[in-house]
Write a protein that binds this DNA or RNA. Sequence first.
DNA 1: CTTTTGCGGTACGGTTTGGTACTGAAAAAA
DNA 2: TTTTTTCAGTACCAAACCGTACCGCAAAAG
Lengths: 238, 238
Amino acid sequence: MLEAHARTGIRNRLLHMIALEDWDLIGPHLEAVTLKDRHVIEVPTKPITHAYFLEMGVASVVAVDAEDHRIEVGVIGFEGMTGVPLIMGDNRAQHSTYMQIGGSGHRIPQEALAAAIAKSEGLRALMLKWAQGFMIQTAHTALANGRAKLEQRLARWLLMAHDRLTTAAVPLTHEFLAVMLGVRRAGVTVAIHGFERRGLVTTRRGQLTLVDRAGIEQIAGSFYGTPEAELKRLLGGN
Amino acid sequence: MLEAHARTGIRNRLLHMIALEDWDLIGPHLEAVTLKDRHVIEVPTKPITHAYFLEMGVASVVAVDAEDHRIEVGVIGFEGMTGVPLIMGDNRAQHSTYMQIGGSGHRIPQEALAAAIAKSEGLRALMLKWAQGFMIQTAHTALANGRAKLEQRLARWLLMAHDRLTTAAVPLTHEFLAVMLGVRRAGVTVAIHGFERRGLVTTRRGQLTLVDRAGIEQIAGSFYGTPEAELKRLLGGN
DNA sequence: CTTTTGCGGTACGGTTTGGTACTGAAAAAA
DNA sequence: TTTTTTCAGTACCAAACCGTACCGCAAAAG
């Protein structure tokens, strides 16, 4: 639980943007949580018990179908929250959501969130705009999946991760990157090797560090950037 | 404009599900429209002036980036409405939306829709659930784009179109199918030829008719079906 | 009926990616 | 420290798909 005056210590953009008069609807219900690597937040078809406002780390939202095909459809960090369906009035998880890079955050029970959204129009508007931003991200993931090459998609992912981290180090194995991008592990290895050879990243076992962000942006081209710009527009430039 | 008693003639699922007490917020603002092939409904970055409730035909929502890469991220028919961002409190079009297969519908001005959603909780809940269903569709499009083969994606698209048409004939050129799937026109031609050889479809210039829907479903596998089932769950089985 | 345009069938080389598998090395566990 | 596990590097063939292009034919326009 967080008192109103405690918000100064909060990094989460959404929590930060909650109007003072709405804070009583959210703050008292928040529970600080540590979120380790691979911590599972939502499981497909199961009820969503909490929404998580991340402070640190990166969560992956992964779509899964009946034949176990899977691919990442969105990433969430300190700029947003998990549990988008809750905002839409649905309490069933559609996708698999888990921490891709460990961190921390605050979570709120589904019931408390629903009550808060029902009571405050401002709160509802804020979260709907976040949901809209997340939709845009998913749409652009669909675009990248369909038309970008492996190297471009990898670059896009690294940039999105970097945006949500405080260091340039991305602690992740090739295996997990491959799952998220929906490609072979070996393909990721080769692509990363190419980045390394061009001086864009350095690597260690289970870790990858961005060195030349501009260079990576150049590779990603226009597959990166639109969702980020749109989220800024939706939530204001602060 | 539609009177309350005129709703019996309506095929659109969403309009049909609007509660009687909410109808006054919507019905009087509706304008019947004929929607020809390629009719443009929304243009990226421009304001959304109307939301369209389709009666017949199929609309495509196509994501576009700065380098003009494009791919379809959703299709809409009589089961839904265009202008999802309006539901989320945003009035700017993110994607390109246009009629892929001509038809008809009713449109409502953005302002009237916004006012209606603000006034009625039930109306808001209904449309939010539609938006949630559309999000799921987009996520599964991302999944199919990343992991399905051309043949599977084509099968998926044909099934989604068929769901929204009254006849088994899909009046569409290979060229447009290719744009939506984000593949070569020639690739579509070859794939359709394969379907035809297996007796799944018959073709005429600018038209394609489903013959063996079950066979097409088998090809699409689990890439088709989830969004459809989820929309049913969200909006009720009626 | 003739002309023009757009659509579909086909081809070919090149690139990208998948499937699979083996290996050495780094990190974690014993 | 030794053993076990996990991860990254690499290789090979096959399949899928792209870029491009040409040509004949159907449908629309004149």
